[in-house]
Design a protein around this nucleic acid. Structure first.
Lengths: 368, 368
DNA sequence: TTGTATGCGTTATCAG
DNA sequence: CTGATAACGCATACAA
């Protein structure tokens, strides 16, 4: 049990007062350069680091931010999205010596309970919130608590990229009632799902596909709704009814991905292209096609929404929507730090995903 | 900026002293049942929670434990193992209101730096250490710091399941030099890789396979070494030389998994069965076989070491070694809490994995 | 430029 | 059984 040094030890060794040490170590004026250097050296020698609890207690800052993952156990771990996101988040956080508290829970209610507890215990200075939902209770809760937050993957609001969010956007308006003062509203990192969906559809349409089915993720998630809405808008613009271009609901699991694939492929006029909302479902779909003896991409094209190693280890390799997820995480962390530093919550736009054509997409069979 | 209530507020509202409140809230003797109940009720009303910083400062306990993942970026997120482990860890931790600090870094050196910083800052009360290595510097570092730790997936030591570890076991002896007092040695949760490997090999041997290649993971990892050693022992017992049964090294990545598969299948007398050290490599191997037109399991059998959704979404579905990873995490967390509560570090045995035969294993072709 | 005093919220040690 | 009082380590307003 090596006793850890405190500023008192440093003060004694360097022959100055504790407050002088504190000033020296925190780059504050009020101490000569000479003293500062000496104090610094001694602190270094002693291997001193500020006690996080003491600093939190006096400074009103815990030096930690939180991230909660609300996912039912059976879909846990099938997506690489989160580890990459966290990886990006931490690149930024650890530069600022901020720790990340991580928790996985079963549902949003449990997630809210975690936020309340973290807040009450002053465990975190802010949180990064993932998986925005339709009628999401979290922005309001967090604003009410006054807990700074960044919503990762918020609504697509064409136009306004500045402070606050566009009041004319229904999703944003619903997400955070105007009762909440804007300075407290969570920041938002926007993922342009609408544009990404159009990219995918244009790619398939360009190849000649006219019967396209989107295997959507959990219906409660905001990005699912955005993708589905974007698909609807696009197909109406093309004059393709829901009998040809549509979204069907799944729960993101491999099992549901496979089951839904089986269902749509068994229809009298099955789609010639399938767009999966995640990589695991795309894999499951590919396996179903193989089992049914349906050639990919000969008779069926497949697109995976998120790229990962998985999309490159299949045969054929899967055409996928590539996002720089780590960059997404970095942006979220930067925005959170900016808010913690006193900045106004902003809405920031992440890079547009890029469609990477691989071997799983090709023109549809001539018959169609 | 809602001000959070403190025990002072509770004391004022309930008309007793602060220390009485503290006693009442912490189930300590010294207050009447009546007062205790009243204080409790008021604390509840006010939504009071102990300020973690204040508690940490006076109590010498941060109420948090840490977990660091040292993985090069390119293998990040390809394994579902960690999220499931963390999920299990948290089931236990959150029951005790312990937070989890999570950090992902590039390598073991960075990992050690994180431990040092956490220790110096008193951020965590203990850590859960994953991926034990050959000549692992971490147990010694942690013992030196006096930071309680649990090594997840430690050495297989047949026999001793009690306190400390078997001094006759060379791996254990190397891992923690005897210079370190045993009360400070990290606990260990043992995964019986040796027995699991034998299970896999017996399965394949029983089907008739005599040419088996093990696509091992990163050579520096202790469990890789154990699996490889177990394979060696088993094959010698069976009189099968390294020309027939062997391990080849990879780095766990899909790319290396695919490349190594290509190499061994291109040999004049290729193996009839492949055992992959993780699920992603197994998938990659399956894709390579498909690409080369090698039927699985007709001409080649495939076993994946870790089961996950991935192994069930392929065609054919992969025979896999199923582990209850969440249970592994729970056991690790329980052991850590026991040590934090003053218990002696122990070596505990996790459940033996179970081989789940699916469609990717079958007898070898008659020609062999 | 430097030292002193006080507070942050809790726990723990004393007297009453 | 209860109520002051002193730590814990750091930051800071204030006095020297």
């Amino acid at each position: 049990m090596v006793r850890r040094p405190t500023i008192k030890d440093i003060a004694r060794r360097s022959g100055v007062s504790e407050s002088a040490v504190s000033f020296a170590l925190n780059d504050r004026p009020g101490v000569s350069e000479d003293t500062r250097a000496r104090v610094r050296r001694i602190a270094e020698e002693l291997g001193w680091q500020p006690n996080s609890a003491a600093r939190a207690l006096s400074g009103e800052r815990s030096g930690a931010v939180g991230l909660v993952l609300a996912r039912p156990a059976h879909t846990l771990g099938v997506e690489s999205f989160f580890l990459r996101l966290v990886s990006g988040v931490q690149e930024v956080l650890s530069a600022g010596r901020i720790a990340l508290l991580f928790q996985v829970v079963e549902d949003v209610d449990a997630e809210c309970a975690v936020y309340r507890r973290w807040w009450a215990e002053r465990r975190v200075d802010g949180v990064i919130v993932v998986d925005p939902r339709i009628d999401d209770p979290r922005p309001e809760l967090l604003a009410g608590l006054g807990l700074p937050a960044v919503m990762v993957g918020g609504p697509d609001v064409p136009g306004s990229d500045s402070a606050g969010s566009d009041p004319s956007d229904p999703a944003a308006a619903r997400a955070v009632p105007p009762a909440v003062p804007s300075a407290r509203r969570p920041s938002t990192i926007r993922a342009d799902d609408a544009a990404a969906m159009i990219q995918v559809l244009e790619h398939l349409h360009g190849l000649g596909h006219r019967r396209i089915t989107h295997l959507a993720g959990l219906p409660g998630l905001a990005h699912t709704a955005r993708r589905t809405a974007s698909l609807r808008t696009w197909s109406e613009g093309r004059g393709l009814g829901p009998d040809r271009v549509r979204s069907v609901v799944t729960d993101y699991s491999d099992a549901e991905g496979a089951a839904a694939t089986r269902r749509v492929l068994a229809e009298p006029e099955p789609p010639t292209a399938l767009v999966y909302d995640n990589d695991v479902m795309a894999l499951a779909g590919l396996a179903v096609a193989a089992e049914l003896g349906i050639a990919v991409p000969g008779r069926l094209s497949i697109v995976a929404w998120d790229d990962s190693a998985l999309c490159r280890v299949t045969h054929p390799r899967l055409t996928a929507l590539v996002r720089d997820t780590a960059a997404f995480g970095r942006l979220a962390a930067e925005e959170l730090l900016a808010v913690l530093a006193g900045g106004v919550p902003r809405t920031r736009q992440s890079e547009l995903p890029r469609l990477e054509p691989r071997e799983s997409t090709a023109p549809p069979p001539a018959a169609y």
